[in-house]
């Protein structure tokens, strides 16, 4: 029952976001709310086992959601800006020293690993290529490896970021 209610709520909120402003003064028209509820229930029936596959509900904790919003807006956005200036510099000068390194994240959940892999792809000079399913290690293509770094057997996830440790942020959000 809980997966159904959560899926319906998520679908309904998304529908309301998509149709905001359909009423005359910026609120929703009654017909939109009614259709949204019917469609959200239909989505809930079909998709409840996809959204809550592991029956693990820690992401509905509002504290985690607030942390997620802060994470996306501040540290992640700053890292992205740095990443873009970095890549722009390498585009212009052509100074690259690429390679694929093993990166240990110590994240245990699928969601945490996915967020880390996507954050790595969008931040400075790094692109996640593959994952080692048994240990959860990521293989990361780094566009500019520092001299001597390639001797190491693996990197810690925190070392990939320049401004703040995004891996620690993700651990606080998802685990």
């Amino acid at each position: 029952m809980i997966p159904f209610i959560l899926t319906v709520l998520l679908a309904f909120v998304l529908y309301l976001l998509l149709t905001a402003g359909s009423g005359s003064t910026g609120v929703w028209a009654y017909s939109e709310i009614l259709i949204g509820l019917i469609l959200a229930c239909a989505v809930g029936v079909v998709a409840r086992n996809f959204l809550c596959r592991h029956r693990n509900y820690r992401m509905i904790n509002p504290l985690r959601l607030i942390r997620l919003c802060i994470y996306v807006l501040v540290p992640f956005f700053v890292e992205m800006a740095v990443a873009n200036l970095n890549v722009a510099y390498r585009v212009i000068t052509g100074r690259i020293r690429p390679g694929i390194m093993r990166v240990r994240s110590d994240l245990k959940t699928d969601l945490g690993t996915m967020m880390l892999a996507n954050s790595i792809t969008l931040t400075p000079g790094t692109l996640s290529v593959d994952i080692d399913d048994s240990s959860g290690d990521l293989f990361v293509h780094i566009i500019n490896i520092e001299e001597g770094e390639e001797q190491k057997a693996l990197l810690r996830a925190g070392e990939l970021f320049t401004v703040s440790d995004l891996a620690a942020w993700i651990r606080r959000i998802a685990e």
Binding site: I96, R97, P98, G99, I100, R102, D132, E150, L154
Partner: peptide, 13 residues
Amino acid sequence: HPARAVVDHLKGA
């Protein structure tokens, strides 16, 4: 394989 790569851990793994 990555061009001009100095290291490739994935290939070994």
